[in-house]
Design a protein around this nucleic acid. Sequence first.
RNA 1: GACCCUUUCAUCUAGUGGCCAAGGAUGCUACGUUUUCAUCGUAGUCACAGAGGUUCAAAUCCUCUAGGGGUCGCCA
Length: 463
Amino acid sequence: MSVVTRFAPSPTGYLHIGGLRTALFSWLTARHNDGKFLLRIEDTDLSRNSEAALEAIIKAFDWVGLNYDGDVVYQSKRFDLYKQYIDQLLEEGKAYKCYMTKEELDALREEQMAKKERPRYDGRYRDFTGIPPEGVDPVIRIKAPQEGTISFVDGVKGEINIAATEVDDFIIARADGTPTYNFVVAIDDALMGLTDVIRGDDHLYNTPKQIVVYHALGFKIPKFYHVAMINNEQGKKLSKRDGATDVMEYKAQGFLPEALLNFLVRLGWSHGDQEIFSLEEMIALFDPKDINKSASSYNLDKLLWLNAHYIKNTPNEKLAELLKEFGVDIAEHDKLEMLLDATKERGKTLVELAEQIKLILNAPTEYDPKAAKKAFKGNAKEILTDFIAMLQTWEKPLHLPSDYHEVLEAIVAEKEIGFGKIGQPLRVSLLGSMTGSGLDEIMAIIGVDETIERIERAVATIA
RNA sequence: GACCCUUUCAUCUAGUGGCCAAGGAUGCUACGUUUUCAUCGUAGUCACAGAGGUUCAAAUCCUCUAGGGGUCGCCA
């Protein structure tokens, strides 16, 4: 049987990285088995839907490159279908109308809480045959088993047993007739042919409810995998205050989708000691049975490390393309290769990489005071002036970094100084700071004229 | 409060009774490479939640305790 998995977000906000991870796990399971990965939008609560949220989710999917099969399924467009099943259950006596008002329910809950019981519906209309109270639009409740245990084998957690008394006759249709979550999820998962349901373990308690629906409707129960949550760096539940939780925020911060995906796949899943996984490797190696039971904490340092790794291994042309969004357009620059080779090992994010590039491309407008003080002292002015002269009278061509290196070697030899004596003031002259890319590369990129100009400007500031 | 899940370095994790005085990775600290920073390389740092059992042998099996998380909606 071919594997079918799905991701089923409700369009109430952006795509969360926790959601992306379960989506990734589902997607990998489908791709690994040459199966299908479906996308379904859980929008049964008409009042909470948002078009913008839906777009944001699709956009995020697009950015990370998770493709889904077939058309997106919208639950809001399937109400007729759900209605048929509600009627069927009503007819078969597997569901019933409940005339309890919200106020009555609240009172019941409070009473149960006071008695330190788990609040749940008491089944008072389960076998009701009398005359319904007037003025109350009934909800439809499904008959859950009243004794025994509801059991299932979770692919991650193992066997789960929930006492039937813990599962009440939950509502499958609201007073206005619209169906509710646990009911439609079970129907859609069954109808869409899901074989493996991979979701967050906050759904663990929904599973017995959905199993009640599966049984009532005679559907085949899929395999469930409940993945533990992602916590923040303090081990607490991830919330908006923990920085980026929106997937697209990572794009804005200069992360590569392959780094994010690699980071996420290793949160709660592993394959021996391997840390770096290309998409192809993930697909080849992923198996949901290897998903960990326990929650994991989000760790920005590791993401940054992975991102740096992927930046280093991304072809320069592609980087140039990506950098356009970060205020650097070097796609047409004739020294593109040299520029990126000189900088790509210095940026953990595209934002940082863009800064490095700007630093080289734009002449410094000011010199870091500390750096200037340290570098522009002693006979620095004289050395720099001589260096300019040397560049101006150099007879060999000056194109490659190695060409400039020869000049550097020449001045070191002639003046009998260490590299630092020319290196430090030269670096501050060119970049305005004490750190950065290799001098040979910088000079080769900006060219001899610009090099001389920057040094002259620096020399002018030295007393 | 009730019910359910969970517990190996600071963090992600390997580990399925002997190969574990617990391995890898990130982080951190050194050192080396580099004119600088970064990269890279080498080394160091750091953990089986606790207590009882079972066994010749336990990180691994059982019990209890403690910590963490989730769920208890006419939300999804």
